[in-house]
């Protein structure tokens, strides 16, 4: 069973639908016991870091998530979930879970494309990733494959070894991060067509060593 952690951060049904579509059982839950029993964890979410962390603490999910990580369960962060696992977010100046050291930063408001055109924020739409290292969850994902992003903030891990892939949008930022048994994407695999489904399927079968 895969637990999709529900912390009042947006609509999580699309993640659950995608996981069911590829044939894995999942449950959207904030129940600590169920999270404890789950074989793997997906930690999605959209919204703002401040209110997300408030909900997480109120529901005592912070300890449950850290415990799941410490016990070696495969974990997948998505979008806001990816930012929440970092140490600190500039969004609402929020202290986060600190599973991956580093900061979550806002895109500079004046970012420009190569030809000096103003780039809109949030970064919303399809963009490609450049893999920095091989990872089993990226198996079958090709260079130039694109994924669907919606975000105004991005993770900036302190240890660059934790950057698995980057994406360019005026600046180059970490679009997939992780180490040991955690991997986290800034984009939405559940909304990224066939490539996103491939990535989710890889995660559902991933056995971190």
């Amino acid at each position: 069973m895969i637990a999709i952690i529900d912390y009042n951060a947006g609509n999580l049904t699309s993640v659950a639908r995608a996981v069911s579509h590829i044939g894995f059982q999942c449950i959207v839950t904030n129940n600590i016991e169920l999270i404890g029993m789950a074989e793997r964890i997906i930690f999605p979410g959209v919204g703002a870091a401040g209110s997300a962390m408030e909900s997480i603490k109120r529901l005592c999910l912070d300890k449950a998530i850290k415990h799941a990580f410490a016990t070696g369960k495969p974990m997948l962060g998505i979008c806001l979930g990816t930012q929440i696992i970092m140490g600190h977010s500039k969004e609402n100046d929020t202290s986060c879970l600190g599973i991956i050291n580093g900061c979550v930063r806002a895109f500079p408001s004046d970012i420009k494309s190569r030809d000096e055109n103003r780039l809109k924020i949030p970064h919303m739409g399809w963009n490609s990733i450049k893999s920095k290292k091989q990872h089993p969850v990226l198996s079958g994902v090709r260079e130039n494959d694109e994924f669907y992003f919606v975000h105004g903030f991005y993770p900036d891990p302190a240890d660059k070894e934790h950057v698995i892939a980057t994406t360019d949008y005026g600046i180059s930022f970490a679009s997939i991060i992780g180490f040991d048994n955690i991997i986290a994407t800034q984009f939405h695999p559940e909304k990224s067509g066939k490539q996103g489904i491939t990535l989710l399927k890889n995660f559902c079968m991933w056995k971190p060593c």
């Binding site: 494309s113 190569r114 055109n117 780039l119 970064h123 919303m124 739409g125 399809w126 963009n127 490609s128 694109e146 360019d168 949008y169 005026g170 180059s172």
Partner: peptide, 9 residues
């Protein structure tokens, strides 16, 4: 470095 988003159809 390609820095723009794909245009959506």
């Amino acid at each position: 470095m390609e820095t723009v988003l794909s245009k959506r159809i």
